[in-house]
Amino acid sequence: MTRKRRECIAAALFLIPSFAGILVFYIIPYIICFVQSLFIGDSFVGFSNYISLFSNYTFTLALKNTVIFTVTAIPLLMVVSFLIALFLNSFKRLNSFFRSAFLIPVVIPVASLIVVWQVFFEDYGAINGFITSLGLPKIEFFDSWFSMLMIIFIYVWKHCGFCVILFTAGLANIPEAYIESARLDGAGPLKIVTRIKIPNITPTIFFVFLMAMIYSFKIYREVFALFGDYPNEHVYFLQNFVNNNYYNLNYPRLSAASIILSVFIVAVLFVFFMLERKRNYLE
């Protein structure tokens, strides 16, 4: 046996416990979850749990709200943080101060943030105080479609800092020569951003998108802290559905919803990686 072959066997053997862990703690439970989603009690029902999920008002509502939140909040977060990063990139002296300032929301515990936002958004809170002082009617942030706006705002505010740091790091890595030569060729600020800066930070954009996506699934913490287990119909997300079904012991529905949620995440990630691969290929 050659040395290389021996090393390969050793490496494979050392990797097996790790794979066994993944198998035991991820793949097998996933399969069990899938199998459980095909049963109600002891009786096999095929895909009827999935079919009944899509005819279930709460699930479709949760799915709709999750999609609305994802397609609104993620692009908004990316655009806002990119614009702030661009701004900071132009004022390098202020850069370090603002970067630290923007990071504060990320490190503050959710419970503390919620207390602050409650003071702002409640019926007799600061925002409503301001609105009513202008003679406008009060907004019920906790009991109307404004709840969704409030959650999107909190999401962007909380995660903006981290994304700004990622974008500023990406922008700082663009060689100054590219921008200079573009300027000499007569490119304006907008063209420099769209033609030079954005294409050069594409890997960063993908990474920020991935992070924003992960954060969007964590928004449940804020929703739970603000509204409890049962929020109003405007901010009832898939995580609420899954979590409540877990507590209410509805395992068949919980399993089916989890499988759908995981398929949804895998599909988004698949598209994301395909796009990234395509971009690398074009490069």
Partner: peptide, 17 residues
């Protein structure tokens, strides 16, 4: 009115989930 709205919503979610 708010209580009834929230009560109905939470109960409906709870029963239908």
């Amino acid at each position: 009115n708010k209580f009834i709205r929230q009560l109905s919503s939470a109960t409906k979610f709870y029963l239908e989930e």
